[in-house]
Simulated assay, not measured.
Amino acid sequence: MQERHWTAETITIEEAAKFIDHSLLRPELTVADVQAGCETAMKYGVASVCCRPIDVPLCVRELAGTGVVVGTVVGFPHGSHTTATKVAETRRAIDDGAREFDMVIQIGMLRSGRYREVHDDIAAVVDAAAAVDGAVKVILETAFLTKEEKIQGAKLVEEAGAAFVKTSTGFAPSGATVEDVELLRSAVSPKVKVKAAHGIRTLDVFLQMINAGADRVGATATSRILDDLRARKGV
């Protein structure tokens, strides 16, 4: 893939915003917090919001006509739901208006070498999301995996037909690193995108992640990142 060299000088605010999935996943968020998050997403024109399943209908209403996609999570945050439950979650989210789906793999099964089960779990969600041509972003939770497990997980994501391989939920001891983003990018073909999440709170870290190969960045610090970019540009 072409090497990236985005800097605060070369990337536009609009380009930067389209890398961001604005995260609204903290369990304590109120309805007013979610509405404020949607306002932030609209203000900056981000790629999507990634919200809790219960908030999908609200976010769909708040973001109607804005071009900001509504996404949600599946099997979140531990990945240990049954496949049938993950499929049901996906179908309900579709009915509620979600069009992107950040699912967590069966982490323990990957670490146990039970790759067929991991593959089939992902593929079932991909198949469900295909009803609306929805993008499935598969979370490996890299904090718990060895290098070899990360590579194997990424390959299973591609084999199962998902659109993205993603680093983290935001609920593990650590999140995205430049090294992990580069590793995942190298482990899959160009048709699979990479999403970095957890701990991306500054413009400089954001730029590091997209230069390492991230096509999307999950962030709660959207305003801080993009306001810093605007300030550096003097606009």
Rank of each mutant, 00 (worst) to 15 (best):
G37L: 04
P53S: 03
I54R: 13
T30M: 12
P53Q: 02
L29R: 07
R26Q: 10
V46T: 09
C50E: 03
R26V: 10
V56K: 00
E39G: 05
Y44D: 00
A41Q: 05
L24T: 05
V49M: 13
L58K: 00
C50T: 11
C51I: 12
Q35Y: 10
H22A: 07
A32I: 05
L29Y: 13
A47S: 10
P57M: 12
P27D: 14
E39F: 12
V31W: 05
I54F: 05
V31P: 00
P53M: 05
A36F: 07
V46S: 01
K43C: 08
C50A: 08
V46K: 06
L24K: 11
Q35K: 13
Y44F: 14
D55P: 00
D33A: 04
E28D: 15
D33V: 08
A47Y: 09
D55M: 07
D55R: 08
C50D: 06
I54N: 09
P57Y: 12
P53L: 03
A47G: 03
V56T: 04
Y44Q: 15
L24D: 09
V31F: 05
I54H: 13
V49L: 08
H22T: 11
C38S: 06
S48D: 06
V56F: 00
V34R: 07
D33T: 02
C51M: 07
L25F: 07
A36P: 10
I54M: 09
L25E: 12
A47R: 02
L58W: 08
M42N: 04
I54Y: 01
H22C: 00
L25A: 04
G45C: 01
Y44S: 03
P57H: 09
A32L: 05
A47C: 02
I54E: 15
A36D: 15
H22R: 00
R26K: 15
D55Q: 04
V56S: 00
K43A: 08
I54G: 09
G37M: 03
D33I: 09
T30Y: 07
Y44T: 06
A36T: 05
T30P: 13
A47E: 01
G37Q: 07
E39C: 09
M42E: 05
Q35M: 11
E28K: 10
R26I: 10
